[in-house]
Design a protein around this nucleic acid. Structure first.
Lengths: 336, 336
DNA sequence: TTGAAAGCGATACCAA
DNA sequence: TTGGTATCGCTTTCAA
């Protein structure tokens, strides 16, 4: 009873209908061989009438090329991801590529499943990416473009990096805070549910540490909290203490917004008593009051670079690493 | 030089390495035939050593089943889409399915390209979905689950609908506004860039019209604006007029936020002089001031229903239509 | 110009 | 229990 796929029209059907050989149909479809005009017309007519579409699976199998990419990320729900995906999709569509997405999982069985799917390339934007995964993909001949890591020990064959500017961005923020007179700057890490992640390698933290060293400031780092509650209570602790910070550089906008909430509860004036900065330039950062100073990554630019790099990798097996355009967005939360 | 795919390990390699026939390898991999324990071990060992993964493309071609779904939507960037995708991905992962995404395009050539990719099923969440597309997919035997439309003239074979509750949601909002004493309620449609869309079929508008008829209220509908600027100027017109509305039910949160901005500019007090409601329960609606009364759709629930329906469609070719859970979220913008 | 035939990498029937 | 073989639908070489 399952007639689901019985309706599928194949090249054979077209050949029959047009009274030509199957090969001719392929030639006409691909336009790579000269076919006598009359036959070509018969084929085209049959294609139209039967609504024939060459089976992409069969073609991919034969060609060893699927025109299918995969985007792996920690957070499918972020504005950032959505914007990048959106920009990529537009380009990919015009290039006849398809893109799938999945949450990144550190599990070698999972990576093998992915390899089995025969993607031409994989994007990975994750803070918990490990070298083994990269090697695994490289060994399987899958082009891999990584985003968001500043550097990696050894970049395998068939692999390239897009530097998303986390390090540079954090530096811009800190410079700005410093220039505004802040000297006790707290770096507030986020609250997290997923304990897989290797936070301390985050370039933002590195940038913060480097900055403190340079300017000879005291390092005030709030470690990642296991829960929102924990985060709130820790932060309240920091802000109620004697020597409280005069600025908080938050891990991202989401975290910064939490900070703002708590300052409101505690009656601390922002930016009067405390400057606050975020990271990501989410919509929220613009609409919240006080509006949030933050770093914006040019997401279209990033998407473009990710794809350029990917295509180059697929073509040639090699590609230069790239860096994304970022911008400091000054708003109310750090004093005009 | 392109050794990209030379590294690919096939069943043949495993068979050779294990000293068995290719068929045996398949039997071991699929566990669907008894194989002498000793051979099985040899095969497993070879699989491990060579890091063999059955080629999913070949398998799909043979099985006429790709375990690959597609999500088509108007807006890849919305919070709603991200959340639904996220929830779906978790379930799909455990079922060994893959999902791709693409912006919905009304172009029969595009749909044909999609059909060529041999998806087992397609989700469509678009306000501009037309019956022809549906027929096309149905004819090709692709299971199709539609979201967001209240109803459609004729639902083809192999197709089901998830009612996202737009109509019910708008009614809840209007009831709430009415109960708060509002009698001149303006429905403010959004500003749009994509002129493809068939706005007037939006269930929110229908709900609004029905409501006005029921309560015998004057219909005040602001048509979709071609640009943000146009939207702002039209709205200012409405709010500066003599008989200005006492409530605005906006198309969605994004639109409502624009409304709030303009009220601020004009010095109109919300909710004192004017009640405002949104739709979607975005993060913004919670954090903005005044916080926004809105409708929340349970996105996990929606994802679950979409998948249940899809799987049933794929299995049996039929599935019941379903409705999503929605909730009225009362916040400051409509008075406490 | 054309078409038969050899794959691409799997599944599963049918004999042995 | 096993393995040869036909098949899934397509691309492309090679000979006619």
């Amino acid at each position: 009873m399952k007639n689901k796929r019985k309706t599928r029209v194949t090249r054979r059907d077209v050949a029959e209908a047009a009274g030509v050989s199957e090969t001719i149909v392929s030639y006409v479809m691909n336009g790579n061989r000269y076919v006598k005009e009359e036959k070509r017309q018969r084929v085209l007519e049959a294609v139209e009438r039967l609504n024939y579409q060459p089976n992409h699976l069969a073609r991919s199998l034969k060609m060893q090329k699927s025109r299918h990419l995969l985007f792996l990320t920690d957070d499918l729900r972020s504005e950032h991801f959505g914007d990048v995906m959106d920009a990529m999709e537009t380009i990919l569509f015009s290039e006849n590529y398809l893109i799938s997405l999945s949450r990144y999982r550190t599990d070698s069985g999972y990576i093998n499943d992915l390899i089995a799917r025969q993607f031409d390339g994989v994007f990975i934007s994750s803070s918990s990416l490990d070298t083994d995964t990269l090697k695994q993909l490289s060994r399987a001949g899958v082009a891999t473009v990584m985003v968001q890591r500043n550097s990696i020990d050894e970049v395998p064959e068939n692999c390239a990096i897009i530097n998303s500017g986390l390090y540079r961005g954090e530096k811009l923020l800190l410079d700005h805070l410093y220039a505004s007179g802040c000297r006790r700057i707290l770096f507030a890490n986020r609250s997290v549910s997923d304990q897989n992640e290797t936070f301390w390698e985050d370039p933002r933290v590195t940038a913060y540490e480097d900055f403190c060293r340079e300017k000879n400031l005291e390092k005030l780092i709030m470690a990642p909290s296991p829960s929102d509650e924990e985060f709130r209570s820790r932060l309240k602790g920091c802000l109620s203490g004697k020597e409280r910070p005069d600025a908080i550089s938050a891990f991202n906008d989401r975290t910064a917004v939490e900070v703002l909430r708590i300052t409101k509860e505690l009656g601390i004036n922002v930016p009067g008593d405390l400057a606050v900065s975020g990271f990501d330039n989410t919509k929220l950062s613009e609409y919240i009051s006080p509006s949030l100073t933050t770093i914006s990554v040019d997401r279209r630019d990033m998407a473009q670079k990710m794809l350029d790099t990917m295509f180059e990798l697929i073509e040639t097996g090699k590609a230069e690493d790239q860096s994304c355009n970022i911008k400091l967005i000054k708003r109310e939360s750090t004093g005009i």
